[in-house]
């Protein structure tokens, strides 16, 4: 009980924000950052192909650190992740890590899991079975252990550059080895539009440059940001989601969406997430980063998550101008 109180006390302290920090808010993009990794499917079969895209902020695009080299991307896959408490290590079997590098050095890659690609069934899964056997104290009669119906495939990305910042990211999808009717694959929520003061961003708008789109605002302005979801009902959580507390324990257990916001300048009203309200307010700074410039490019990212691995990202930018 004592340690329990310690946790509560620490939690309270953290929540109060009274423990002294003065750090930049998490939502402020000032160096290289990956704000999300979207996948073409949250659940895949062994023969599928999967596309991953890292949504990153490059400070050079916002006029910051413009002399720095561009970011690099190094992808890899871990079929037996040890989880966050083990600091996302990949299992090492007989001195050899099961982590395998993937082809592709861009922010977006496509991975073929089938026999012409990674060959999960022929190459990777036997290693997983061997790992499971080892962890269970050795498989009997030398037979491999049958893997469970689903396995987590953890994709890893090391991106950036020392001059602008280097980040390590993991993105996990489920590999379904046996079909299940009771637990349909989770689908990511989809963001349809990102608006500022009820106007689409000109760069993101189909009718870019149209007078009704949002192209920019002077310093000191407060913008009302909003994202629109693709229409469609929320998904129903599965029993496994509930057991792992990934969904609210409601009846029916409908997934709850949360939104994260990021900006390269200014201050967001909600620094982190705003529950199920897809809105936020961005107060632009009182002056530009560099005196003498007419405008400064500001980037905004909106990320929606369903808490079960599904996510989508929208990115927009606009010019923040000097006061006339």
């Amino acid at each position: 009980m004592r340690s329990h109180w310690h946790t509560v006390f620490g939690l309270t302290c953290a929540a109060l924000g009274a423990c002294g920090d003065g750090f930049d808010p998490r939502s402020l993009l000032s160096s290289y950052r990956v704000v999300g990794v979207t996948v073409s499917a949250n659940e895949v079969s062994p023969a599928d192909s999967l596309t991953l895209k890292a949504w990153d902020f490059d400070p050079r695009d916002a006029g910051l650190m413009s002399d720095a080299p561009p970011p690099t991307y190094a992808w890899s896959l871990c079929p037996v992740p040890l989880g966050s408490a083990a600091q996302f290590q990949c299992l090492t079997l007989e001195g050899v890590s099961l982590e395998m590098p993937l082809e592709g050095d861009a922010a977006e890659i496509t991975v073929d899991l089938g026999p012409d690609g990674l060959d999960l069934v022929g190459t990777v899964l036997p290693k997983v079975s061997a790992a499971l056997a080892k962890l269970q104290g050795g498989a009997t009669d030398g037979l491999p252990v049958t893997p469970p119906p689903t396995l987590p495939l953890q994709f890893r990305l090391r991106a950036g550059d020392p001059s602008i910042g280097v980040v390590q990211v993991v993105r996990t999808v489920s590999l379904r080895l046996a079909p299940s009717e009771s637990a349909p694959p989770n689908k990511s929520p989809r963001l349809a539009a990102l608006t500022a003061d009820a106007r689409p961003f000109c760069e993101a708008s189909v009718e870019a440059g149209a007078p009704e789109c949002f192209a920019g605002a002077p310093v000191g302005t407060t913008l009302n940001l909003r994202v629109e979801l693709d229409s469609g009902p929320r998904e129903v959580c599965t029993a496994d989601d509930l057991a792992q507390a990934r969904c609210p324990d409601a009846t029916p257990p409908i997934e709850a969406l949360t939104y994260s916001w990021f900006t390269s300048a200014g201050e967001l009203e909600f620094d982190f997430t705003n529950d199920e309200t897809p809105e936020n307010a961005l107060k632009l700074p009182a002056r530009l980063d560099e005196e003498g410039r007419e405008a400064q490019k500001v980037y905004v990212f909106a990320v929606v998550r369903d808490g079960r691995g599904g996510l989508d990202v929208l990115e927009a930018s606009f010019d923040m101008t000097r006061l006339p």
Binding site: V169, S260, T273, V303, R305, G307, L311
Partner: peptide, 16 residues
């Protein structure tokens, strides 16, 4: 010594 970003949960796990 740094952190790993988990894109599924939007959390950073510190590397000890």
């Amino acid at each position: 010594e740094g952190a790993i970003y988990d894109a599924n949960t939007d959390t950073y796990t510190p590397l000890r």
